[in-house]
Amino acid sequence: MSTPPRETIQKQIQQDWANREYIEVITGSIKKITDFLNSFDMSCRSRLATLNEKLTSLERKIDYLEACKCQPGIQTQDMKIMEGTKPVEL
């Protein structure tokens, strides 16, 4: 195999530099996208966790209120003593 002329090789090497630069730029961009996705992930997790917490708290409140509603005769079981003092309607 005969060696190609010097200039050709130098041109090839320069082309190689250019190609590799292109690859590096693309790689760098992918890296940036990765970073973005990671921070997007973190941010979403944080917000979802907050949301989840709010929902859980609401659910628990609803549970509690339902239990309160089920209480037998909370409205009727009242202040036995006070009933005598209710104004008598004439």
């Binding site: 790689t27 973005f36 996705l37 921070s39 973190m42």
Partner: peptide, 30 residues
């Protein structure tokens, strides 16, 4: 490329103080 650069400008708030090692869901190594 400019689209990628624009990504930087999106604000992604994460309210927790950073007291743990680098968390990464996606690892990219060329």
């Amino acid at each position: 490329l400019s689209n990628v650069d624009v990504l930087d400008e999106l604000t992604l708030p994460d309210e927790q103080p950073c007291i743990e090692a680098a968390p990464c869901s996606i690892l990219y190594q060329a």
